[in-house]
């Protein structure tokens, strides 16, 4: 399964699952990343990390290793 950290610019995908074992997963869900939501990679920072995704009409930045726990299809 693909992870959100592997997305390319402009690729719109749906979240299929959040990996609950990641310590940041609680905050990731709280901030709006839930299964079924569409996300898109909008920006990459210097050195390609952190990444900024659009979700529910907001722009959220997170580290690459945190984006790993968002599984997409």
């Amino acid at each position: 399964m693909k992870k959100a950290s592997e997305l390319k610019y402009g690729e719109k995908v749906k979240i299929s699952e959040i990996d609950f074992s990641h310590p940041s997963s609680q905050r990731i869900i709280e901030i709006g990343f839930t299964p079924g939501q569409e996300i898109e990679l909008i920006n990459r920072s210097l050195f390609n990390d952190p990444l900024a995704f659009s979700v529910r009409g907001s722009l959220i930045a997170m580290r690459k290793d945190e984006a790993d726990c968002i599984k997409v299809t």
Binding site: P23, S24, R27, I28, I31, P50, A52, S58, L59, I60, A61, M62, R63, E66
Partner: peptide, 9 residues
Amino acid sequence: DNSSFIIEL
């Protein structure tokens, strides 16, 4: 503890 950076832009 977990090092985290999640921020709304």
